[in-house]
Design a protein around this nucleic acid. Structure first.
Lengths: 334, 334
DNA sequence: CTGTTAGCGCCTTCAA
DNA sequence: TTGAAGGCGCTAACAG
């Protein structure tokens, strides 16, 4: 039924080894022989069995990419960066979605490891002790992509989330705002939302603006949540004049709550986000935000992983990429 | 270095066969023996090698999912449907993105086949002769998901795109609109955009509204494209009062062009889309659209694939799921 | 430049 | 209920 390397060898009148060499682009084959083999392959419609190959060579030339949340808007661009570099180095990549559930993340990591991937990229979620434990039990290199672990014991590529939030608040302060509220994500996410929270506080502090408990509310990162939290701020007696949302999706929700109240963004209230997802420029007013270099995060982390897989020397296992303030139409002078 | 089934056998004082049985949940093992084996596995930190298993059993219990475009907003929800059912039947799924490039789609299909997946799901893109050719050379079942082929020779799960567009235009006609324009996708996409185009024409025809060439323009499916095409319509002397956009993203672009011209949606111009991506309710005015049952499309196609993989009998290899008109704020009486 | 020969780690009869 | 043994399809020395 299935045609194997042995069939091709017989058809071409050579040995299995020679066919193997041809398939693997080993230069030690006479051009003429090579041609014969290719013809036989063509005639028989031979397709190499990657499973057998993986077993024999102990390398699968594939890297597993764990996506904690496939509906997250930033992953598409990051994935593109990963793939471009992976292709360049002739690695296949297989994506596995974990649906934002930690237990499933661990399961997926183990599945990938059982499949003998040559390396692992963990993309964008919260990294716990259990994750690290799962990584440790493997013999393959792991790179965290658009995230990092608190202990900083795993190679990673990310931005400085604290600084990103700091810069966003700065942009507000520069424009004369003093009543600046934060729509935060869950603070248990120590590497993303908590850092952004710290950046918010730090910017206020440096500007001599006192921190107010009632100016911070936690959302879940989704649009609806931005809608709700902003509603709370609208009801405040001493309403904020500017908002930092910990991500763009909540920022957009916040904008819409303001509009739905019949007020204007940015004339009445300024709103800034973080991430620069594609949607940020697909709303009115267009959202000002702090851009993550998503493609680069993907590309650099994949590049780092290839080095680790080849046991090449790497200067620095923890890479921080620069972010960029993008001013559009959703913020204005106080 | 790596611990194998043989090590576990020795540690537990049984044969490899017994360990294999335990790992594969074969009931023919004495509970006591099973326990011993589990303990040995635990002690040694044994992790089954899926590659070796795949080679020996000729089944990998994984299905490959080809995603033509990972940044497409509808795939996340479809993927969720696929995964839920896959988990239910104990299949792993591996996602492969093809970046909207046909040549890469074919390559990815072949890679997946080389990896010996037990089945293939092709999600949402245009299916050409070359695709079908690639499918044919494999021995595993293939299901098209959120798409179908013109010849209808491959099992598929999709909606009736023509009817969806028809219903959208109907919603406009019902509200008294007569000057209805279409922001289409490329008509070469026979299974999606061309069908939607036909639905548009059919609805007009049945209502006795003459078709106008200048009321149809082709976009590329993206937001920016909606922006541009709508700009063209705005300049028309006899401006349309209603727009059908062939997908939501272009519809949203169209809305913003109208707003940017200082006019109102829906008071001056009504706009309706197709798909019901999450973003449709994340804009102001919220977008009316025709919803695809994305989760179900994923779930049903995966279910169909499991049947095919088990060689079970299936009634109908081509499933059409119902769509639904969702009226929100972007359309009004003429 | 080419062929021979061991495995890679596991499943799966077939016997016992 | 368990063990022995023969592959699965391919790669990787090692010879020649």
């Amino acid at each position: 039924m299935t045609v194997t390397i042995y069939d091709v060898a017989r058809e071409a009148g050579v040995s299995m080894a020679t066919v193997s060499r041809v398939v693997n682009n080993n230069p030690n084959v006479k051009p003429q022989t090579r041609k014969k083999v290719y013809e036989a392959i063509e005639r028989l419609g031979y397709r190499p069995n990657a499973v057998a190959r993986g077993l024999a060579s102990k390398r699968t030339t594939t890297v597993g990419v764990v996506i904690p949340d496939i509906s997250n808007a930033i992953i598409a661009e990051v994935a593109r960066g990963i793939e471009d570099i992976a292709n360049m180095y002739h690695y296949n990549i297989i994506l596995c979605n974990a649906d934002m559930r930690k237990e499933k993340e661990i399961r997926v990591i183990n599945t990938l490891l059982e499949k003998q991937v040559d390396g692992l990229l963990f993309m964008g979620g919260l990294v716990t002790e259990d994750h690290i434990q799962a990584f440790r039990t493997s013999n393959v290199p792991v790179v965290l992509c658009a995230t990092s672990d608190v202990e900083q014991s795993v190679p990673s590529v990310d931005i400085d989330h604290q600084l990103a939030a700091y810069d966003a608040v700065q942009a507000l302060i520069t424009r004369g705002h003093k009543k600046i509220a934060l729509i935060s994500g869950v603070l248990e996410d120590l590497t993303h939302y908590y850092q952004r929270y710290l950046g918010y506080r730090k910017a206020l502090e440096e500007a001599g603006i006192p921190f107010r408990e009632d100016y911070v509310r936690i959302g879940n990162g989704r649009y609806e949540s931005g809608l709700e939290v902003m509603n709370y701020f609208m009801e405040l007696e001493d309403r904020p004049t500017a908002i930092l949302a910990a991500n763009d999706e909540m920022a957009i929700g916040a904008i819409h709550t303001v509009l739905d109240h019949g007020l204007s963004v940015p004339d009445d209230i300024s709103i800034i986000g973080i991430d620069n997802v594609r949607m940020a420029s697909m709303v009115r007013p267009r959202l000002s935000t702090v851009a993550q270099p998503m493609y680069d995060i993907g590309a650099v982390s994949m590049r780092l992983l290839t080095k680790l897989m080849k046991k090449e020397h790497v200067e620095e296992e923890r890479v921080i990429l620069p972010h960029e303030l993008i001013i559009r139409d959703s913020i204005a002078e106080a």
